[in-house]
Design a binder for these strands. Structure first.
Lengths: 265, 265
DNA sequence: AACTATCGAGAGCAGTGCTCTCCCATTCAG
DNA sequence: CTGAATGGGAGAGCACTGCTCTCGATAGTT
């Protein structure tokens, strides 16, 4: 099954561009495999350009083939279908976003939890504004009849929420997450069960209410970014969108129980 | 220009389906115009069905024509292009959502501001889950190269935020919006200007910080709904999504400064 | 050096949006 | 009531899409 090999090569390439080191073991050896990997990489690169320029729904395998200087049927040797190319681009974009977020968060001192949260939010917004089409692929309406294969996308797809959870849990363990006195709305039984499962899976210490608030900060962050990128704010309504976003981020940090950015321990 | 006539007829039809009464004056008189309006209505109805079934990007004029029992070129007599049909369906969906929200909000006593906010949020979520494809058309990634004509969509497109603003301003005027003591993050100059313009346009009394928090509640609400509808929560992560959403709504109401639902004046 | 797996080209199918022309029927004016 | 004008359906056609299949040539393997 050549598709499996393809997927493996791509997966390895992407993982390598990330932080993985063990992935290098699956590096292609024979010249054929090297050439093949190169061609697939070219296809993904051209696909990314088309995606950025014309949007996901307008992505055409034939157009990519033309840019590659090859007839359309030839690219089917490397990519199973248009869907598969979309999946590749999805993973690519998730990792790009994840890299941007990790870099921004990593540049802030580990103990500055508010600062790290602000950096995360700013990185997401910045990346989204820089790459609106790719952002739309990740967080917009699902592409017609296309369902991302979970087994290949969940990994890179959870990097942002993983980073956010890390910040929240770190703050909680450092005793810097919210004052003990503040009490939010009750957490219903079913939700409590879901949260307990998440806590177990990630090895967290954060209690229910704060974890739910963290989830809110997560969805609200992407809600704000989506509204701005997708133009849901009317044209000209907000001339200073970065200030609005900054205000939102500050309020969300407070909602999540995080200290203000740069706050001393 | 037959297109103008078409647009006019559609506009009137949509307005009539809303709450408008004066629109009846433009009711088609001659049999030809009646038949034409009927055909356009059929096209929109079939389009809505296709949209709901297969999603926006898969919407095909030719398929609609087949369902209508007519050859494809015939529907171009009634609809200028695929884009125009999408615009029609966009307006249709906006009004459907607006009707659902208005009905839900209207069913709660006017003085129960928290209850009205919860009703609004629940209505948005309920509609979105009932009509995921139409919700995606409104709040998902913009369709390929398609830009909604502002002059025809801003009206119905602002019904939800208008309702939300009404709740917030009503609560503020009734002296029930947040305690005086609570202070949020500073509102920067550019943002303050934008908010002042909004306040003037809608005749509001709500001060800057609370208005910005209202905007956050707005984007966060749609962020939460979008995550749920678009499947951004991993499959099986939240078995009780309505409880998560309820928690989010309660926190958001508090963030916006609204009293709890059912709270006595 | 012989073999075979791989890959590019080309034709082809079914579908799409959209245009143009032709022609019939309904409607309206005289 | 007759003749013209208008509206609208049918069909062909263009350029594009995703995808499949077959046929050689070539380059890597043995």
């Amino acid at each position: 099954m050549p598709e499996d090999r393809t997927a493996g090569a791509i997966g390895a390439g992407v993982a390598a561009s990330q932080a993985g080191a063990a992935a290098a073991a699956v590096r292609p050896r024979t010249p054929r495999e090297r050439a093949r990997a190169q061609t697939v990489a070219d296809i993904v690169r051209l696909g990314r350009e088309h995606l950025a320029l014309h949007g996901a729904a307008a992505l055409s395998l034939r157009a990519v083939a033309r840019d590659l200087g090859v007839v359309s049927s030839a690219v089917y040797r490397y990519v199973e279908s248009r869907e598969e190319l979309l999946t590749l681009l999805l993973i690519d974009a998730y990792n790009d976003l994840g890299d941007a977020v990790d870099a921004a968060v990593g540049a802030v001192p580990e103990a500055d939890f508010g600062g790290r949260f602000a950096a995360l939010g700013g990185a997401v917004r910045g990346w989204a504004l820089r790459e609106p089409s790719r952002y739309a692929l990740l967080f917009g309406s699902p592409v017609p009849g296309y369902r991302a294969p979970a087994e290949r996308t969940t990994g890179p797809g959870t990097r942002v929420i993983t980073a956010l959870i890390g910040i929240l849990d770190g703050a909680f363990r450092a005793g810097r997450l919210a004052e003990a006195g503040r009490q939010g709305p009750a957490v219903a039984a079913g939700l409590a069960g879901d949260l307990a499962k998440i806590r177990a899976e990630f090895g967290l210490a954060v209690p229910d209410d704060l974890l739910a608030r963290g989830a809110l900060a997560w969805t609200a962050l992407f809600g704000a970014v989506s509204f701005e990128v997708f133009g849901q704010y009317g044209a000209g309504t907000f001339t200073a969108p970065e200030e609005l976003f900054g205000h939102h981020l500050a309020v969300l940090a407070d909602v999540a129980g995080l200290p203000a950015a740069g706050a001393a321990p």
